[in-house]
Amino acid sequence: MMNDKITTFLNSGLLNKYLIGQTTTSETLEAEHFIAEYPAVQKAYEVLQNKLEFTAQLNAEKAPQSILEDVLNTIEEKPVVTLKSKRTKKWYSLAIAASLAALLFAGSSAYLFNQNNKLSDENQIIVDEIFDLRSDIADNNNTLHQLLEQFKQLNNPETEKYVLKGNTRAKNLKTVAYINPKEKKSMIDVISLPQLPDDKVYQIWAELQDKMVNLGVLSEADRRLQEIPYTQDALGLSISIEPKGGSQVRSKDTPVAEISLKLNE
C-alpha cells in the first residue's frame, strides 16, 4: 500500500515539472531522489514518459494545405503583430507547449493517484473477504470438532441412553438423554415438543435425593444434540411446564415426562 510520503509527492505535481524540465535545482534533486528511492514513483515516472511520447505521436498530424494557405493570406492582409526576433517567437512557442504539457501531466498524475487509491480499496476488499473466509473455515472446523466429540460420546460403551416420552399432557413430546458417568458428560437430543402457549416453556430437571436441579429450558429451536450440565448422583430426569424464561424451582404440577437413571446401580 502506498505510504503518505509517496502520495504527497505524486500529488504535488513535482514529477510533472521534472519531466518537462521546469524544476529548480533543489526540486530536481528531490524528484531524482524519489525516483531512485521508491519503485512506485519510478513506475509513475515511466508511465508519464510513455504518455508524453504517445500523446506527441498521436497529435503529430500534418495540417491540411488549405489551412496553411488561409493563415498566410490572413497574415499578408492584416499583420496583427510584428515579432521582434526569432528568439521571442521560440520562447512563446515553448511557453505554450510547456503549459499544455503541464496540464496534461497534472491530469495524468491525478489519474494515476486515483487508480492507485482504487487498487488499494480493491485490495482491502479482497483482504476482508479472505479474513471472512478464514473465519468461516474456523467456525466450520470448530463445529466439526464438536460433532466428532459428540459422536465419540454416543459410541462410548460407558454412555447410557434414556428416552423421555410425554404423558397425556404432552403426548408428542420426545427427547433422548445420553449420560456418561465415567466422563461426567450429559447430552440431550430434542426430537419433538408439543406447542405451548407463549407464556410457557418446557424445562428439564435432574432429581437428587433431596432437591431438583435445573438443567435448562428446552425449545424446538434446539432440535439438535447439545450438552447439558452433568449432575453427580442424579436419581432421575424429568421435564415440566414452567413460566416463560424458566424457573429455579420446579412447579408442583406433575411432570409431563420423567425417567429413572441407572447411574447408582
Rank of each mutant, 00 (worst) to 15 (best):
E76H: 08
K89F: 07
S109N: 02
L68W: 04
R87P: 01
K78L: 05
Q65A: 14
N114I: 09
Y111C: 04
A97Y: 05
V81L: 11
I75H: 02
T82C: 03
E69Q: 13
E76F: 11
K78R: 10
T74N: 07
S108V: 02
D70T: 13
W91Y: 04
K90T: 13
T74P: 00
E77V: 05
A98K: 14
N114A: 15
I67W: 11
A63Y: 11
S99Y: 11
G107S: 03
K86E: 09
A63I: 14
S108T: 03
K90C: 05
A110G: 05
A110L: 04
F113E: 08
S85V: 02
T74S: 13
V81Q: 12
V81P: 00
A95Q: 05
A98Q: 13
L100F: 04
S108C: 05
A97C: 03
R87H: 03
K84T: 07
P64L: 13
D70S: 15
L103D: 11
A110W: 01
A102N: 08
I75P: 00
L72C: 06
S108P: 00
R87D: 14
T74A: 11
L112K: 01
D70C: 12
A97Q: 12
P64N: 10
K84P: 03
F113W: 02
I96V: 11
L104P: 00
K78Y: 12
N114E: 15
E69N: 08
L112T: 00
F105T: 06
L83Q: 01
N73I: 05
A98E: 07
L72K: 14
L112V: 01
L100I: 02
N114K: 15
S99N: 10
A110I: 02
K86C: 00
D70R: 15
T88N: 07
S85W: 01
A101R: 08
N73Q: 13
A97F: 08
L112G: 01
P64T: 06
Y111E: 06
L112I: 09
F113C: 06
P64A: 15
S109L: 07
T74R: 15
D70A: 15
N73M: 10
E77L: 04
A106D: 10
P64V: 12
K86V: 06
K90D: 11
L68P: 00
A110Q: 05
I96F: 14
N114Q: 15
K89N: 04
A95W: 02
A101P: 01
K84Y: 09
T74M: 12
A63T: 12
V80R: 14
L112Y: 00
W91R: 11
K78E: 10
S85G: 05
R87W: 01
I67K: 08
P79D: 06
L72R: 15
E69M: 06
L94Q: 13
Y92V: 08
G107V: 01
T82E: 04
I96E: 05
